[in-house]
Design a protein around this nucleic acid. Structure first.
Lengths: 167, 167
DNA sequence: AGATATAGTTATAATAGGTAACTATTTTTT
DNA sequence: AAAAAATAGTTACCTATTATAACTATATCT
């Protein structure tokens, strides 16, 4: 770095010292998007492990919880609630239906739409999954105190809840 | 919900009332993974818009910033630093090199590895991008105060910085 | 010299996510 | 009531992301 006026002269070979394995000190540390992605990667990894036994993906878990909370929810409701696209809901519900966890019931009043309900199996599973998910959250955020964990949740909600129009 | 003993009886049709478009009140609101995903989606959407003009993806931005901070960094360094896989680094650096933003310099001491450097163009661009990224963060988190924004960043770092072994 | 390890690459596959176009039904307009 | 427009769900398709395995070329170890 001293033999040339240029900040990073391509003439020089990589430094002998090992480069750090963190981004400490870089501007990247200040970027919310980066921090969010890294934190999410970590939390999702724990989630995947916790759900592996039941072969449940994050989107499937979210769907099951929403259906449990709003039995008879339609697919478009679900799409809007979870901010996903209608075609994605189709394959999501297909997978749940094939596994006997949920089922579509054609709505009598408006025969275009389906109400989605959990089966007994689905209800039993989602109960179990909710516990596993909570445990997984705790494990993934062991470095936080209970107060910090709540703070984080509150801040994140504040961020995503304020949807201007970009959704 | 009153005619049957079952929690969500498939016999009934979907309720007349519109279902909410948020997950308020559901267990989902308590899940960190869900909150992280939603917040990240929002922040990334703003980021994408901010970077559209320069056709830069999040991973490209991160790479540029790391290369700027550690000129001569090798691809394996980069992979480790950003927690991505070596094959992903290849296409990442390819795209940057094709656009004249970075370049590989074969290392004389160990001819297996490449040092990555920014070109003049790359340096100029990353300077501009850093400003845009900061602005985009602010826009995406308008609902937070400056103090809250710092808190959030600190908490997120605390989560992802404590990598046990899962990485 | 021969075995082993490492840096980077290529090929490949699984998956997420998004767009466009189609069917069936309902609602609105004329 | 017939025609037009809108809506719910579906299908087909396309792209980007990410992971895995196998290959090459160098380097290191014994």
């Amino acid at each position: 770095m001293t033999t040339s006026k240029k900040t990073s002269s391509p003439e020089q070979t990589p430094l002998e010292e090992a480069y750090p394995t963190t981004v400490e000190g870089l501007v990247l540390e200040e970027r919310l998007g980066y921090a969010l992605r890294r934190a999410q990667l970590k939390v999702f990894k724990h989630f995947d492990e916790a759900m592996r036994e039941h072969d449940i993906r994050p989107a499937q878990f979210s769907s099951l919880v929403v259906i449990e909370g709003y039995p008879g929810v339609t697919q478009s409701n679900l799409a809007q609630t979870l901010s996903i696209d209608p075609p994605r809901v189709v394959s999501l519900i297909n997978s749940l239906e094939e596994r006997g966890l949920a089922l579509r019931v054609r709505c009598k009043r408006d025969r275009r739409s389906h109400g989605i309900f959990l089966t007994k199996t689905g209800e039993a599973l989602v109960d179990r999954l909710k516990g596993l998910a909570e445990q997984s959250d705790l494990e993934a955020t062991q470095s936080l105190s209970e107060i910090e964990r709540r703070q984080l949740l509150t801040l994140l909600r504040k961020v995503y809840a304020s949807e201007e129009s970009d959704d």
